[in-house]
Amino acid sequence: MKAVHFGAGNIGRGFIGKVLHDNGYEVTFADVNAEIIDALNRDHEYTVHISEEDGASYRIKGVDGIHTANDADQLAEAISEADLITTAVGVNILPIIARTLAPHLANRTTDRPLNIIACENAVLATDTLKAAILAEVDGASLSNIGFPNSAVDRIVPIQKNDNILDVKVEPFYEWVIESDSWVGEDKLDGVNYVENLMPYIERKLFTVNTGHAAIAYYGKTLGYTTVSEAMDDEKVVAYLRQVLGETTRYLTENYDFMEEQQKQYIEKIIARFRNPYLSDDLDRVGRGVLRKLSPNDRIIKPLVYLHENNMDHGALSKLVMFALQFDNSDDPEQVEMNGRIESAGTDGFLAEHSKLDSKLIEEIKSSI
């Protein structure tokens, strides 16, 4: 079996690529990073290191790479032979991937099953990719192609290794895939197939991602530069628990997660954040602040729900203020946000960008 994975970065190699390799796939990575593609085609293998005391190491063999901009014919052949296509490129890049995939999918000469999965840190990202592909194929039939959405979770910290291809990852990972949208009988081991994906997407988004944002934005106000430094401060841990206590109310009100079950999940997440072998830079964790303050993302969606239902949301209100005060001039979204606040004020920015009402905006402004 053959797989093409778009995105040869650390997530692609350390998480998705490893799972595919473990399932017996020949994995071809497609990327525009010439240095990584050249290394893949030179070595055809790399090592995934588990970041914990006495962590194991795994050799990922039989891989190669294609430069998506320079090797169009080779990429077309790989797509035509693929049994599975995955991405880990960032949701904003999916329309570009769609333009690459669409002509080859529309001209498939085989009816064998093909699944295409966007493994992105976004809600229903495969739907986004599918819509972009359909817009390109102009009504052509995409026979026996599945587009299952998925939820992925594995912390891969910023790192620099002696071998450019080697990757350090945390021990924990979770990959959940929509079962009803999968075509064919060959499912992946080490993956959880479910009928309803949304509870898993939002549990991860409003626990792992909201938690990471809380550490980054509050930790930075206290002068910390890394997750490890911040998590050594019990004030940060206490605030993190308050935030996740509020998102728990959202999750248990909207899905079938029991409160005790969610508390156990939170303890697992906090233990992951405390892992000293995974410490990441707070500027990197907090970047993309406009996305993080958008209406359906990790902070605003649970905050609005709790506000509208008269439930406690003080910690999430503070998190908005910490995000607004985040200082990372290397983040283009931070620079844009600062400009918009300077032009429209905090009220105008939160009303226009986060779609908040005036009452909640006043609560947020008076929260710290």
Rank of each mutant, 00 (worst) to 15 (best):
K130R: 13
D189H: 00
D153C: 03
I145K: 11
L251Q: 08
P332D: 15
S179D: 15
G55Q: 15
I11Y: 01
S354I: 13
I158N: 09
P157S: 11
V156Q: 00
D331F: 11
G55E: 05
N309F: 09
A76C: 12
D280A: 02
A72L: 07
I85V: 11
L84Y: 01
I155N: 01
I364F: 00
H307F: 15
V152R: 00
H49D: 15
A88H: 03
Y193A: 00
E178F: 01
R287W: 03
N149L: 07
D64L: 04
I270A: 06
A34F: 05
N161S: 11
L251K: 04
V285Q: 03
L356H: 05
D232I: 01
L319G: 11
V91I: 15
Q74L: 14
N115L: 08
L282M: 00
L222K: 09
D347R: 12
T100W: 03
H67N: 13
G65A: 02
V48W: 01
Y46E: 06
T226E: 00
G190T: 03
A76D: 15
L129Q: 07
V243G: 10
F172D: 08
N209K: 02
D357H: 15
D327W: 13
G90Q: 04
R241L: 12
T87G: 06
D31Y: 09
A238T: 15
I97W: 02
D38V: 15
T247N: 07
G12E: 12
I299M: 00
V167C: 05
E120C: 13
T87K: 04
E362G: 01
A98P: 01
F322Y: 14
V320A: 04
L356D: 11
E52T: 14
R42S: 11
I93E: 14
N163V: 04
V285K: 00
N192F: 02
V167G: 00
Q262R: 03
G139W: 10
A230P: 04
